[in-house]
Amino acid sequence: MDQLINLFLSNPLFIIIGIFALISFMSRISKAGQTNQRQEQQGQREPNKEEPQKIDWRDIFNQEEEKAEPSPVRQEQVEPSSYAPSQHQESEVRNDLYDRLEEMKTKKREAQERVSRQKQAVSAQQTQSSSSELSLNFKNVTGKEAMKAVVWAEVLGSPRSRKPHKSFAQPPRKY
């Protein structure tokens, strides 16, 4: 037994594990004590799992009886004339609706005019761009421009996989 204690005390790893175990154990105990004190102070302590909860069946039956009794419903008589708007209010509502209709018509006309102006502007731009087409002047092509054109043709052209070639040259046939 004495050798076992000396082994644990001589190895620092065992000492560190023991210290952390004691600290965690003590913190759990203190947290449990604090929560119990708070619950007792608030009067909301939950009964232990070992203590059976006492159920008062009379309270449950009284609640059901209270729910079963319907409360008297007050029925108020509402005069139908209070719902009907007066002639003056009807004419105001109609005037407001007519004004809104006129506003919507003017907005629609303005929108149509804007669309027609935009269409005219786009068609004018198209006619200008078609008249200023790209003019190719092959008389003034230099050697560098020709090399650039070949490179761009290879870059922008169809891929090599679309133009297959034989990778192995076949020997000529002897007759």
Rank of each mutant, 00 (worst) to 15 (best):
P171W: 08
S81L: 03
I29N: 05
M147G: 09
A111I: 01
P70F: 06
S131A: 07
S132T: 12
S132M: 12
P172Q: 07
Y175K: 12
Q87R: 05
S116W: 00
I55M: 07
F25C: 01
S86E: 01
Q3V: 00
K54Q: 15
P12E: 01
K139G: 12
A68P: 01
L13A: 06
I15E: 04
S116C: 01
D2A: 07
A21V: 05
E92C: 07
K107L: 00
N11I: 08
V141N: 02
F20A: 15
F20G: 13
F61M: 08
L4Y: 07
S167L: 14
D59N: 15
E110A: 09
A121H: 04
P85W: 01
V122S: 01
E66C: 02
A21E: 00
Q125N: 14
E92P: 00
P164I: 00
F14M: 04
E154K: 13
S27D: 09
S167P: 03
E133K: 06
T127I: 10
Q77P: 03
Q42F: 09
K108V: 06
G18L: 04
I16Y: 11
Q118W: 08
V78W: 06
Q170W: 02
E133L: 10
K148R: 13
K67P: 00
I60M: 05
E90F: 06
S10D: 12
L101S: 08
Q63W: 13
S82L: 11
R160F: 04
Q44F: 01
A149Q: 08
